[in-house]
Write a protein that binds this DNA or RNA. Structure first.
Lengths: 290, 290
DNA sequence: TCTTTTCTGAAATCTTTTCTTCATATTCAT
DNA sequence: ATGAATATGAAGAAAAGATTTCAGAAAAGA
């Protein structure tokens, strides 16, 4: 069995009978807290097992590695395999299509984006953001960029139902001064800015910061320059096998925020939502006969 | 916050805005395959991120460590904690938050939606849809509903770059007759319609069907009534722990389609995209000085 | 545009780690 | 018990790694 197909643990097990006393002691020590215990320097590993460094060097050669560094690299790979979740790697999403089909490759990438972004997500940022958005004493402004305008629109649509005093700042910069005139200290502005970052959006953020508004930023892993001005930043991984970036993960975060804000405002919002539903129904009803 | 209570990832996050270009690049590289990527030698870490070793040394000092070895020891501890703690292991998306936090519950639901929807996806439908959308001899119309209008807009934004002759039919039903007048046999109309299904959208679909247009429908698992008229239907699961439905999975499918259409039209589209980029850059340039 | 400041990596230096040697200790066979 | 064979770790040599310095490059500011 070559080492490329075996784990270090297996190699140790297989050679268990050829080992000397000190080597056996070392082997045990490695296996006890496997595989992390083998991740330090050769000196640390030796000390930890109560043997000398040459013993470590000899053992790793005995089980088939060229030297300690190679042994350690193998361990690192195993750690990596253990840590990275099997969901993303081993499942085929669209069972009908081969793994190489764009549907499966794309979905893999998106899942990885979600995993990575959620792993990074600061839960305090999340909670504080939701609290800010649920605070109806603050006016709420929402702005997006060339591509992110759809996300901004999506967010706006929902917030508009949940609370009053929500403004979607459209991309026409001529109209900005009017919005900014209305912006008071401690109002909240939600900004979407992913690469390629737009100068105009940055200017708007600067003006909002000057006005004393709280800035909530949705950006990508490379961080829009607005991050320096923002009170709360959500950075999301957006890489997919496409000429474009993915907005899926950002939308996931946005929807989660909407869900949380909803529960926070529910007592107040309930009636508001019911009234709205009735109005929409009525609109539909009329249209039926036009 | 002292480094004993923070993970390396948090330290990187917290300092994200004080970092220089090369440092940010390095930080990303470490986070992408966290925490294993930081376990090699300083040389390996640097090479992996495409920066020099001094940059690595500087970064780890900046975020609070005395040097690279201390930084690496911290990472090893985290790996150990991750591996040895079976609870916090892999099902939790935002490691910081408990499993019951909305962030984790919501993400669970979305992943389940993706898994389910992709499992259902008919790959022929997908391929044929992309072929239709890549066929520039057909005019393309896009329409959404009250909530799905953002998705429609997102799809429109991208298709508009990829090909000519794309129309976003906005929600104002007064204007519909004009669009329908332009609609020829074998044109393509993409309709987004999830619950609660809108009568007005159904009427539009009926008229489009009469005009002989190919109908591509994005709907939910309960199928909009338009499904009966549609040539290709994508049904996605949209259930999340929220008062709202989720658009994340739909957006995933939409983005995948965009990616595929892009590769189909690339030879023709390339120049078109480059010209557009130049124009956007120019717009930015002007704005800088207004 | 030009100057100043900040950033970056090549190279040199210093440190640590890894490997090898070899003298001593241990085990096993007789 | 004695010698032969093997195992072990101290110590030093070799290699690799980490840190510092510094000059040129890039960015910011004037």
């Amino acid at each position: 069995m070559s080492k490329s197909t075996s784990t270090v643990a297996e190699l140790l097990q297989n050679n268990a009978d050829n080992l000397t006393r000190a080597e056996r002691q070392l082997s045990q020590s490695i296996l006890v807290n496997y595989p992390v215990s083998g991740l330090g320097s050769i000196t640390a590993v030796a000390k930890n097992a109560g043997v000398s460094t040459p013993t470590v060097a000899r053992l790793v050669k005995k089980i088939g590695f060229s030297g300690f560094p190679e042994f350690q690299a193998a361990l690192r790979n195993e750690v990596e395999a253990t840590i990275s979740d099997p969901i993303a790697k081993h499942d085929t999403w669209a069972g009908q299509a081969p793994n190489e089909h764009i549907v499966n490759k794309f979905t893999d990438a998106v899942i990885e984006n979600i995993r990575h972004s959620l792993g990074q997500l600061d839960i305090e940022t999340f909670d504080q953001t939701c609290a800010l958005l649920a605070d109806t004493k603050r006016s709420l402004f929402i702005v997006g960029g060339r591509i992110t305008r759809s996300l901004a629109d999506y967010f706006f649509l929902h917030m508009q139902v949940l609370r009053e005093d929500v403004t979607h700042i459209q991309a026409i910069s001529n109209a900005w001064p009017h919005y900014l005139l209305d912006m008071k200290k401690d109002d909240v502005i939600v900004i979407f800015d992913v690469r390629r970052y737009e100068t105009s959006t940055l200017r708007l953020a600067e003006m909002a910061a000057e006005a004393g508004a709280k800035i909530i930023l949705f950006t990508d892993q490379w961080h829009s320059p607005i991050a320096k001005l923002a009170d709360h930043t959500f950075s999301v991984k957006i890489v997919v096998p496409s000429a474009w970036d993915s907005s899926v993960t950002t939308m996931l975060v946005v929807e989660t925020i909407i869900a949380d804000v909803q529960t926070r405002t529910w007592p107040k919002t309930r009636q508001r939502m019911e009234e709205l539903e009735v109005m929409f129904d009525r609109t539909k009803f009329f249209r039926k006969f036009t």
